[in-house]
Design a protein around this nucleic acid. Sequence first.
DNA 1: CAGGAAGGAA
DNA 2: CTATGTCCTTCCTG
Length: 808
Amino acid sequence: MPPKRKAQAPLDDDGGFDSGAEEALSDQETFDKLRDSFDVKAMSRRLRATHATDPASFLFKKCDQWDAQLKPDHINRPLWVDDAGRIILESFSPIFKDAQDFLINIAEPQSRVSRIHEYSLTAHSLFAAVSIGKSSKEIIDTLERYSKTALSPSVISFIDKSTSSFGKAKIVLKKTLSYIESDDPTILQRLLKDATIAECRADTTDGLIMEAAPRIGVMAIPGTKMAAGANQVAHQVAEAAADPQAPSDMIAALREEDDDDEEVAQVHSFQIKSEERERVVKRCQDIGLPLTEEYDYETDMVNAKLDIDLRPHAQIRYYQEKALGKMFSNSRARSGIIVLPCGAGKTLVGITAACGVKKSTIVLCTSAMSVVQWRAEFLKWSNISSEDIAVFTSESKNRFPRNAGIIISTYTMITSTRNRSYDAEKVMEFIRSREWGLLIADEVHVVPANIFKKVTYSIASHAKLGLTATLLREDDKIEDLNFLIGPKLYEANWQELSEQGHIAKVQCAEVWCQMTPEFYTEWLKPSSVQKRALLSIMNPRKFQACQFLIEYHERRGDKIIVFSDNVYALEKYAKKLSKAYIYGDTPQAERLRILENFQHNDQVNTIFLSKIGDTSLDLPEATCLIQISSHYGSRRQEAQRLGRILRAKRRNDEGFNAFFYSLVSKDTDEMFYSSKRQAFLVDQGYAFKVITRLEGLEKRTDLAFYTTHERRELLMDVLLSKDADAAEEKINGDMFGSKFASTGRKGRKKNGARRTAGTLSELSGGQDMAYIEYNKSRNKELKTKVVKNGFLRKLQRGTANAKKAAKE
DNA sequence: CAGGAAGGAA
DNA sequence: CTATGTCCTTCCTG
């Protein structure tokens, strides 16, 4: 994958590197001196790595390597294709739409900034193209037609080579067992020569299993069902013929299928161990013979039909239809992944897919809350009867009464390795023992986590549909989805959807906040990353910017969410500004109360959320988002947070914009992380504007931490908080260190130290600190789990205050 | 219902 | 560059 590029200039047009006009001069001097004394080289190097590449330079570089002649009418052709399979699409071309539709099928979108889109041809993307029915010739011809230059031979041979062996063998399910199947026995022989695959073989026969092609009825071995199958087709043909609306080719197709059946086409197969499914699929991809997984649901006579249809009021949007079209071509369901931004109707896509397959369906979600939502959506959009949808979570362990139905559950529920309750085990048995027509994996990007990989062999499903907004992980496991679920079938273009009003338009901005001298002085002292991070977050200028933005947007009538990963900062900010906040320990009832107020009470326009709000909370009221702590360059988190405001209810109001601010403390690590986090959104075409000063901010005297005194106090508070205790070590560490060596024995990692500190809160502040410091080095062995979190935090604050008092 | 255990995110 | 610490979620039990 080529490196991501920043599309926008790092600086605002007029702003430039505004060195803080809002600072009093003396502050500025102090600040400059501080900065001069600090070695900024490392940081600027990192910044340059993400900021510096200018958006067009890579084009020129590529042109240099190019001998290819431009075609005479190149101006009418929208593509540049280099010999490594990288494709540049000009979005201003008149045939942009056609070219985009084509590219999305055969290549991986890398970046879709406003004028220039970049795609790349990969083996995976070509496999996806073949599995939705594109031939190698079709791909090459179309590419050639759109390209400004003749395709290089290496690209052609890459496409040829990659596609020639695709689609020759498939993986199928018969009576919950897995088989590799092909028309061509030599392909299977070839596969069996591979040691890994041979190892995973389950049947002990020497040769291959051979049977008539699994058209109609053949799947059923004894007579009765076969007859039923044949009957059904006859019935379908009759039905189709009787229906004046039915296109004649459809009838012909059905008849043809019937005819096919009479010629005894042979199909060969061997069985593999279900638990080795992934290994086999992966191995087959590695050796260039990827397996297709398709489900011929219409002719499946073994599994009961599920009575489900979309309700008439369910309107499928065109992009949802496109996505589903990729999944359902050739009247089969194929496994794969559909990528749609948050709020673009992923659930409806899943439900429609279930309505297409009409077999038992299992839906997996990440949290119990979305399980409830999925169920509600199913009832809303389809005519499924409510008893046919079972929910399998810790609090509800239902099964459906009939032969076919829907189960909605969580990944953890399915994959848990620990002891299950009796009921849970019963339901698991039920799930394992039957065949599923469709598996819907919500938030599919979580699946590659080690534990979740198990789902695919706990559940025997004919087809799998993965849904996600952000097919992104910071590790390299995202590739695994290719064999865990299937190829990416469709990926929507965010900009296009927002232009058409399906998701909100968003203005993104990065607000650079200068560090105050007090805070920067501390920041520059050698200390832990945690402490530095905390100082950057608690930077009073950032606080003021936040306060300013909240006031500004509240006046505009926006509903604002403020995100902070850091709970300490979350609490400080929220309390200082008298706003409600929710984090992990907030009890369910309290959460609901706050959310309720946020949505319906016009006195409550701002809430503070920890990363609890990244996913799962659905807040259609929110229109403005402020990020105050944005650690670890997680692109997915950034995208997901942005997703919180994409479904803004007011999005169709004339000229409506949602706002997304990232507050960043200047000259700290946050700058680096921030640009890293934005990479994904920038590739989706979002332009981040850099704001170096907020108009009117400097004139305000009523903002928090206006006086030096207040800022000092805040600094003290920060330094004494649990995250920033390194400085005290020297003072108190050796005085009390040994005294408590035998006290605590347990506790998980650093938490242990914190917990134990709680239990010892009756000690004086100084001793307490010493204790914490002493145990820092050996907290791996600590293991006391005494008090619960919420209580602890209270104690924590108590001890912090005690420390402060002791110091003064 | 509180609390523990386990695991994920990045 | 990787390892880390912190937060959050799930499920199950006493």
